[in-house]
């Protein structure tokens, strides 16, 4: 029971902590969750943070191939552990725009901390502190979300483990090179470089 107490206190403190941290988290787009089926990104932009608006981007994959993308405009209720997003764009496998309005209204989605996985990761990042955000996502991605999502999927398909694949996918080839040279088996290094170049 006692082991959950710190988490409980953290949840109580979350709204205030998030407000303080928003002053200092560097602007940019962060990879907050990834698995072979898809990845989720949250963008931090000063005026939007001030307005309590969080841009979200999603990329979905099957067998390493892109199946679709979605963008949302989200708001957070950190005390409740929920982020609510409204769809603003969606594309299919060929990156063609998909109609997404239902009776003229954009559908809404809820991400609940209690659901675990990607939901939990999105809430943790949006409601986190600068420190917790950087621990979760390391650094703002170097390229586009599309490039980082594609690189992550390709790296996982090569057998690179989750943590290393995330670290490599968010960097450009130049800053990823020391990591490739030291952490990727020699036989895979060329393929990893190709994956980071999107080839």
């Amino acid at each position: 029971m006692t082991r959950f107490l710190p988490l409980f206190l953290l949840l109580l403190a979350a709204p205030a902590a998030a407000q303080d941290a928003e002053e200092a988290t560097p602007r940019g787009t962060y990879l907050v969750y990834a698995d072979p089926a898809g990845s989720a990104f949250v963008s931090i932009e000063e005026t939007l943070v001030d307005s309590g608006v969080w841009p979200l981007s999603f990329f979905y994959f099957q067998d390493g191939a892109l199946q679709g993308t979605a963008r949302m405009r989200a708001t957070a209720d950190c005390a409740a552990g929920v982020v609510s997003g409204t769809l603003t764009a969606a594309t299919g496998p060929g990156e063609e725009a998909l109609p997404y309005l239902e009776n003229g209204t954009a559908p809404s989605f809820g991400f609940d901390r209690a659901a675990g996985g990607g939901d939990e990761a999105i809430v943790a990042f949006v409601c986190g502190t600068r420190q917790s955000r950087l621990e979760q996502a390391q650094v703002a991605i170097a390229g586009t979300p599309r490039q980082a999502a594609g690189a992550y999927a390709a790296l996982r398909a090569l057998g690179i483990d989750d943590g290393l694949a995330r670290s490599l996918a968010i960097r450009d080839l130049r800053t990823a090179e020391p990591l490739i040279a030291s952490a990727v088996p020699q036989a895979l290094q060329a393929q990893v470089r190709m994956a980071l170049l999107g080839l």
């Binding site: 787009t29 990104f41 963008s43 307005s51 608006v53 979200l56 603003t88 764009a89 586009t144």
Partner: peptide
């Protein structure tokens, strides 16, 4: 201020989607 962030973004589309009246 929002223009600054969108101008440097490698993909500014999510930021443009999220613009508010104040921006």
């Amino acid at each position: 201020e929002p223009a600054r962030g969108i101008a440097i973004a490698s993909d500014g589309a999510p930021l443009v989607d999220a613009l508010t009246e104040a921006d």
